[in-house]
Amino acid sequence: MSTTSSVAQPTSAAPLAPAGTTGDRPVRRRRRPLGGGIGATFGVNGLLVLGSAYMVLPLLWLVFATTKDASALYGSDAFTWGGAFFANLERLLTEDGGIFIRWLGNSVLYAAVGAIVGGFVALMAGYAFDKFEFRGKNTLYGTVLIGVLIPNTATVIPLYLLAASLGVTNTMWAVLIPAFCNPFSVYLARVFSAGYLPDETLEAARVDGAGPIRSFFSIGLPMLVPGFVTIALFQFVAVWNNFMLPLIMLQDRQLFPTSVGIFLWQSQVQQNPEYLPLVIAGSFLSVVPLVIAFVMLQRFWRSGLSAGSVK
């Protein structure tokens, strides 16, 4: 019994196991440096510096722009400090009775609840697809993959139409429930379950008399925590970034996430340039937490990206 499973195990888990871990380590292969010389070194690294500048300069512009008032934005050099940073932030946080704080709170709420509930739901499904055998498994998994292939925005209008007929538009649920459903997370969960969780461990738990539910919660779940964090991180970002769905579903400004709120201000800039510093400062404040999160959680998005590219 145990021999067959230990023989079969490596074939399925081995190619997946590195997927979750390669990102954490420095380059494993040590290649002997080729000739190439100084010219190649400068060429390659010079191009990388240029590419990084292209990626980073727009963000740097946003940082500088946040320190300027409306007239300085149109007048001065882009990469100089203005003196209005705190004035801009103060206006941002007090405008319209402090509605921006409310929008930030909504974004955090939608993204956090969406990430935790949606991530957990996907983790359970991915675990089941990896560890259990049942009839119709491939067909069911096929439907999940079809869900991955349908662009999000193509389902937004149908979602709105259904929600409108049920009279639940303009509620938090109209944004939250779709956030719980992420077929790609199920796919990731299955990959992680195969990579992080050896069948033998569950087999041992079964021999010890643990039922399948208990095995999942006391053994599977703790071992899948890194996978769960990765899935939840990706889902958090997806919900935080979502624009079309809340734009369509919500009319009450008190329910807006930051993306829709900032868009509302942006659409008034043409008439009233005084909204411009609000848009810039609002953008700055909604980017900062995500950038910090991404820098700190590098390990997790790296493993998510490498797992996602395993076909």
Partner: peptide, 26 residues
């Protein structure tokens, strides 16, 4: 790979129902 014995469709259903409910609704 040998499936975990004694865990068939019924247990799998418990794990799959939450996702497929939201999948159906959303």
């Amino acid at each position: 790979r040998r499936p975990i014995q004694g865990t068939g469709g019924r247990t799998a259903t418990i794990f799959l129902v939450p996702f497929f409910t939201v999948f159906l609704v959303a």
